[in-house]
Structures are given as structure tokens and as C-alpha cells.
């Protein structure tokens, strides 16, 4: 065994373990990596911005009068919901980026470095949370330009942001799981389209539950998207707060409890 020791005696032996502080520093560096990409690919920022803005404009002016009688009333009803929809679509970036890293070998390079094992994933999730916050703020700003008024002041807005970020953080574990399981990044987007589109449209974010066919109403009422949208309506406009907020947090805990272990296990298996 002595013959195999190639470390020169003059060099100090490398550290055996890594502290949590170092891991947090690695996480910060890796989220810088995800965010600085936007500088070279401004399209990504447009992706994050144009779709939500377009949805708000289209729904407000095309469907607003038909559904709610006036575009102003409809905006008040729909804006919190469209925030939820947009946030759920945006969680797919996490799985998409992770899959790109896995298939292109970036993940292996990072794992061969003496950094915390959880830092590559944590760095990505942190960066995507920053992007989420940007999209939510942008939606609210556009809404306010179009005439949306918040009902519970700054505190309500901050609470709504925190709640939605907590929910998307939990939901992004689904995206991580999909990102690990599929063999190419585009399949993450296909999954997002196939699942999130029907899921968000069969909620009460665009159309009030009572205007839908009876059989659908049962589903709409238990759809978590409805629950989160109701919580945001309560915080941003008016209506019950405690119930929907508590249920949203329960959903977040449930999603994380189920999908985080599955995603981490799948990732361990894949790499």
C-alpha cells in the first residue's frame, strides 16, 4: 500500500470532508452560472417575460368581457391565477436545464470537482427561484399597468410572493424527477405541455368553477391549482385567506415529501 501513495510529502494532505458553509458557497457560485447565461442568451429572458405578458393581454381583452362582463373585473379574477399557471410552466426550466447538464456531461464535470454533492442541484434550483420571482413581479407589474389593484397592501403582495415561491419550489421536484428520467431536454418541455396545460386549464384560474359542466366542477374544486389560485386571490385582491393558504402549504409539503426523495433517488441511480 505504501508504494501506491503518490502524494508528495511536501504537500499538505487534502481535507477529508467538506463543511456546509463551503457547500453554500458552491451553491451560490453555481446559481451565478445559471443566471449569467441570460446575459449571453437574452432570448431566455424574453421567454421568461413575453409569454406571461402576452397571456395577460390576450385573456384580459379577448375573453375578459365575455367571461366577467368587463376586462377590469376579469383581470382582477384572472391575474392571480395566471401567476400560478406561469409559475408551474416555469418549474420546467429546472428539469430542462438539469437534463441538459446530464446529457451534455456538465454534471459529471461538476461531480468530479471537490464540491458538495448537493450543490449542483441546489444551485440550479436557487437560480430558477430567482427567475420565478422575476416572472411573478413582471406579471404583477403588467397587471397593475392594465388596472389591477392590490387589496391587502405590500404585506399581501409579499405573502403572495412567498406562498407562490414555496409552492413552485415544492412542485419543481416533479420537474427535477422528469429531467432525470428522460433522455433529452425537449422531452421535459413535452411533459410540461402535456401535464401542466390541462392541469391549469381545468382549474378556476380562467373561468369560475360554477360556469363549468357539473362533472368537471368536482375536479376543479380539488385541483391544487384552484387552491393556490384562491389563496393568491385572497392575498392579492380579496376573499378567504386562511383556508386556501393552509391547503396550499399542505400541498407544497406533500409534493416535496413525495417527489423530492423520488427525484434524488433517480438522480443517484442515473449518475
Amino acid at each position: 500500500m505504501t508504494a501506491a501513495t503518490a502524494t508528495p510529502a511536501t504537500l499538505p494532505a487534502p481535507a477529508r470532508r467538506l463543511g456546509v458553509v463551503a457547500g453554500l458557497r458552491h451553491t451560490a457560485t453555481l446559481s451565478w452560472r445559471s443566471l449569467v447565461q441570460i446575459k449571453h442568451n437574452p432570448m431566455e429572458l424574453l421567454d421568461l417575460s413575453i409569454q406571461p405578458v402576452m397571456f395577460v393581454l390576450l385573456f384580459t381583452y379577448v375573453f375578459g368581457t365575455a367571461i366577467a362582463g368587463s376586462s377590469g373585473d376579469y383581470l382582477r379574477f384572472m391575474l392571480p391565477g395566471i401567476m400560478v399557471q406561469n409559475a408551474l410552466f416555469a418549474t420546467m426550466t429546472t428539469g430542462f436545464g438539469l437534463n441538459q447538464d446530464l446529457t451534455r456531461g456538465v454534471f459529471d464535470r461538476l461531480r468530479a470537482l471537490p464540491i458538495a454533492r448537493w450543490a449542483p442541484l441546489a444551485g440550479r434550483i436557487l437560480a430558477d427561484t430567482v427567475k420565478q420571482a422575476w416572472s411573478i413581479a413582471l406579471l404583477l407589474a403588467v397587471g397593475m399597468i392594465l388596472g389591477f389593484r392590490v387589496g391587502n397592501g405590500l404585506l399581501g403582495v409579499l405573502a403572495a410572493f412567498a406562498l407562490l415561491l414555496a409552492f413552485t419550489l415544492a412542485a419543481s421536484w416533479i420537474s427535477v424527477l422528469v429531467g432525470v428520467l428522460v433522455n433529452e431536454p425537449e422531452k421535459v418541455q413535452i411533459f410540461g405541455f402535456m401535464v401542466i396545460f390541462p392541469l391549469t386549464f381545468t382549474s378556476n384560474i380562467f373561468v369560475p368553477t360554477e360556469r363549468m359542466p357539473g362533472w368537471l366542477q368536482h375536479w376543479v374544486e380539488i385541483n391544487p391549482v384552484t387552491i393556490v389560485a384562491d389563496a393568491l386571490r385572497g392575498l392579492l385582491v380579496t376573499g378567504p385567506v386562511a383556508g386556501p393558504v393552509a391547503q396550499t402549504l399542505l400541498w407544497a409539503v406533500g409534493l416535496a415529501a413525495v417527489f423530492a426523495p423520488l427525484a434524488v433517488r433517480a438522480l443517484r441511480r442515473r449518475v
Binding site: A4, T5, A6, T7, A13, P14, A15, R16, R17, L18, R33, V36, Q37, H40, N41, R104, G105, V106, D108, R109, A112, L113, P114
Partner: peptide, 30 residues
Amino acid sequence: GGYDVRRDPHRVRQLIGLTGQYASVDEALT
């Protein structure tokens, strides 16, 4: 480098560099 890859991975990682078909740079960065 004298360290067991299974028992002392963190030490091994401080000694090695890896490059090739499955370890690559981030294409979106400069």
C-alpha cells in the same frame, strides 16, 4: 494518489482533473 476512491472521494477529487466525452464545459458560458 494513494486515496481510496470509495472511502475518500473528496480527497481524490482534490487531486484529479477530468475531461472528455462525458465531462464537458457549459456551452452557454464564455
